[in-house]
Amino acid sequence: MPNTKIEITDLTKVFFKRSERVEALKDISLEIEDGEFVCILGPSGCGKTTLLRILADLETPSTGSFQIHPSSPDRPLQSMVFQERGVIPWMTVEENVAFGLKMRNVPRKISKERTQYYLEKVGLEKFAKLYPKELSGGMKQRVSIARAFANDPEILLMDEPFAALDEQNKFILQEELLNIWQETKKTVLFITHSIDEAMLLSDRILLMSAQPGQIVKEKNIKLPRPRTMEDVRSNEELAHEFVDIWQHLQTEVQGSRAK
């Protein structure tokens, strides 16, 4: 049996806004295996970002707990791939990619090597000395991905990293991400509202409902890797799944509107 990497038990998060009470997450329990690529799919406002932010230590759960099982003591537990505007404008591309390593006081030589390696991986070695203002949206997102991978964490958290990109760039980056991921075999928790994206990337899709945010359905995507968008589109079974997920989201969105 494969090792469990992330263990979430009865996680609940409630937000208070004046007298209003919003149950963002309710009794979330799940296990994610080592090396698994899991997508959380749900309508906007379903608390999926909150779940990710709790795992990223940027928010605390109201009740319940989670655990990330470490494999080595000198590895950070998690790193987040932020959206492209999370690239820090006053640091060069290189400094951005090395950010996590620098924060952890990784020796200069190793830090430099690893930064160089991931810069090449995402095709930005020529732009190492530039500031983000000179990059396109897709290139900035590559910086954000390289920064997370270079930090070599136990798990990677991704919060709709491609949401702001145009369709063409999105496809390219999704495939690049899969290439790097296949090489490192990291555990990934990826948030999206795009069904195509979820089916292309993940081993398992978790469907969430809105308010209270709960995991209502689970789907395993058994398409062999490496995958391409063409594979996903031409697969009969996945076409079926697409409709199923689509209907689920539809009722969720309408349900939350009716409230």
Partner: peptide
């Protein structure tokens, strides 16, 4: 921007590094 503070926190910046880098 709040997101840079989140980035620093997520990547484990201590107070001194937060000051000088962010």
């Amino acid at each position: 921007d709040r997101i840079y503070v989140d980035v620093a926190k997520n990547y484990g910046a201590n107070a001194k590094k937060f000051f000088f880098k962010i």
